[in-house]
Structure formats: C-alpha cells, structure tokens
C-alpha cells in the first residue's frame, strides 16, 4: 500500500503549487515499470484528501507503457510485461526509453 505514501507526496507538492487556490484536477504521469495500481491510487487519493482543502480534487493518471531499446541489435519495442529482454535477438543489454516516469505534470486550478 505505498499508494498511500505516493498520494501524501502528491498532496504535499500540490498544496505547495496551488498556494491556497482550489484544485480541480491533478495530472500525474506514471510509467508501467513503477508498479502502481491505478485503482488503488485513486482510492488512496480519496482517503488522503478527505477533510482537507484538496477534497474533491480529481487525480488523473497518464499511464506510460514501458519501452526499451536493445543495445546489441538496436530494436526498440513496447513491453507488455516487465521483462527486460530484446524480443528480436533475446539480448539483455537493453536501455529503458520509457516506463519509469513518476511525475506530477500539471494542475487545473479554479480561478481565484
């Protein structure tokens, strides 16, 4: 349940950027390699913001598939499972192009 910790961290950053203005939507970008469960995240968000000024703010998750590039054959591919192995040559010398994102990208604030 580290989704609770994630939501507390998100709330801390959001409060700092919102500076007291009402927050309607919080956009986050999370890569598939982060092992975050979106439904759990949404549930934990509702717990964490309950009875705070962020109550009612929606958390929208942009989920980023994992992509790798093989250092041996140069092939790039999108992963269905977190197996860091080239689907072309079976090599394991791969670099991760996407999927490790863990960002708060933007907020939608009500006009003051």
């Amino acid at each position: 349940m580290h989704e609770l910790s994630i939501c507390r961290s998100i709330a801390g950053v959001v409060n700092r950027h919102a500076a007291g203005r009402p927050v309607r939507v919080v956009h986050v970008r999370i890569g598939h390699l982060r092992q975050v469960v979106p439904d759990t995240l949404a549930y934990c968000w509702s717990l964490v913001v309950e009875d705070t000024p962020l109550a009612g703010a929606e958390l929208r998750v942009e989920s980023v598939p994992a992509r790798i590039r093989c250092e041996d054959c140069g092939r790039t591919e999108t992963l269905e499972a977190p197996v860091l192995r080239c689907g072309g040559c079976d090599g394991t010398r791969v670099s991760i192009l996407a999927g490790e994102e863990f960002l708060i990208t933007s907020l939608e604030l009500a006009e003051a």
């Binding site: 961290s9 309607r24 863990f102 960002l103 990208t105 933007s106 907020l107 939608e108 604030l109």
Partner: peptide
C-alpha cells in the same frame, strides 16, 4: 496552454517528481 480548458480553470505546469522530497 490549457487556459479555458474548463470555464474558470487555469492549468499550471508542475513537472515535479512525486518522490522529490524523499
């Protein structure tokens, strides 16, 4: 720019790591 994304709403770019403080 997403100003006007929803009436009376301003979109603010954050681009901050969720675990930055940690």
């Amino acid at each position: 720019d997403h100003s006007g994304y929803e009436t009376g709403t301003e979109r603010v770019t954050v681009l901050e790591r969720i675990f930055g403080e940690n």
